[in-house]
Design a protein around this nucleic acid. Sequence first.
DNA 1: ATTCCGTATTGATATATATCAATACGAAAA
DNA 2: TTTTCGTATTGATATATATCAATACGGAAT
Lengths: 230, 230
Amino acid sequence: MDRTKKELCEECDLEWENLKNLTEKELEIVNLNKFKTDFKPGEIIFKQGSPTSNAVFLSNGMAKIYIEGFDNKRMMVGIAKPKQLIAGPGTFVDERHHYSVAALTDVSACFVKMDVLKELMRQNSKFAEGWLQDISRKALGTFYKFLSHTQKKMHGRLAETLIYLADEVHGSDNFTMILSRQELGELSGMAKESVVRILKEFSEDSIIDDKCPNIKIINKEKLIMVSKMG
Amino acid sequence: MDRTKKELCEECDLEWENLKNLTEKELEIVNLNKFKTDFKPGEIIFKQGSPTSNAVFLSNGMAKIYIEGFDNKRMMVGIAKPKQLIAGPGTFVDERHHYSVAALTDVSACFVKMDVLKELMRQNSKFAEGWLQDISRKALGTFYKFLSHTQKKMHGRLAETLIYLADEVHGSDNFTMILSRQELGELSGMAKESVVRILKEFSEDSIIDDKCPNIKIINKEKLIMVSKMG
DNA sequence: ATTCCGTATTGATATATATCAATACGAAAA
DNA sequence: TTTTCGTATTGATATATATCAATACGGAAT
């Protein structure tokens, strides 16, 4: 992590959808109160338990969002990409992060003072509503993930995870797997060995093509079928 | 359900904490746009998939909030009490309920037009912020429940559920169990038979005293211990 | 009081899944 | 090139938990 690099990053101004609800003047304030930092793979962007003093936007790269639970076990919540606000639900509750975020690839991140965003939220009701929408959408996502973890079996959950990676993260059925088997397990709620075995089954059934760091979904229909209660 | 009973219900004006952020005038608007309905145990207050046209506040009684998942299985999210806003995360996303709510006891509920609340949210930034806090707090709760379902074993989850019922729902270690074993299972993520067996163990270990509809937590320390990774 | 029906309880069994242990592989370092 | 080390893979086994089946219980209806 290189905190010396502190500069304006014009290129990520309008990344978060909700920033479009700000006026020129308000956006200016945001620009004056942000700074950029770079991270290498594996480096922690912020840590569970630390104060939510800044909101984070990735301008480049991907990061994993995860909770450090009991017994040193981790639960991965999802993968953060550019255009998203990363600021946990603790922001409006206890001003503490309730999960950690770590870079998966090279990452450029913009930090924006949370006080500034909160103040803008109070001034601009469109912005407030957008933020409500953002939080709601994420809560809903967590909800459904919770449901599938509770009710689906491993095959279904792993299929779901692959679909998530293809559709939501990479936007393609042919992508480079940036997660280790361990991490895939943390994301789909199973042991790494189970990930390996099921991935192998999917390969044998010609549902996916798993060439080391590259994953290609061959039979999406079947994968979707498995994900719905496989 | 008796929809003919439509009257102002003065007694529940200030129940939801966030309503305190409204002015007299704004509160007046809320009062003009609400109506009261009564429900009997088992009756559905609103159903998953239906439009979020109204926010609901209970002025009396308790209700279960649950998701109807795959394969007719249910997942109970929690128990709603008076003083709380019941309006799922769909409100700001797709204007659909993502869970159902059904009365567990006799219930009196106030329905308030969602459009009215949303408009007030746009006018009054304190109210908007309060709503953000409310949603965040709930999201955080879901988060931790998710974590414990993923990482704890049955004993820990059931202990946690009992603590939830005592502390959050009834405010006493001595309460009447309003949930069936089936429902207890839906709330703690296990089969009803498992609930029965573990409850019996807790009784044998003198952690609880289970006299049919009444539950008394005798050894809270031990129950807490079990809940933390039992 | 007797019947009836849903829920609770109990025991036996099946199944999903984690854990443990051993080995293989592949990239970085020497 | 060889060594080293973390990750991946595979197989064997243990364990948690669900499911199935039978019975018991308690309140509502007759």
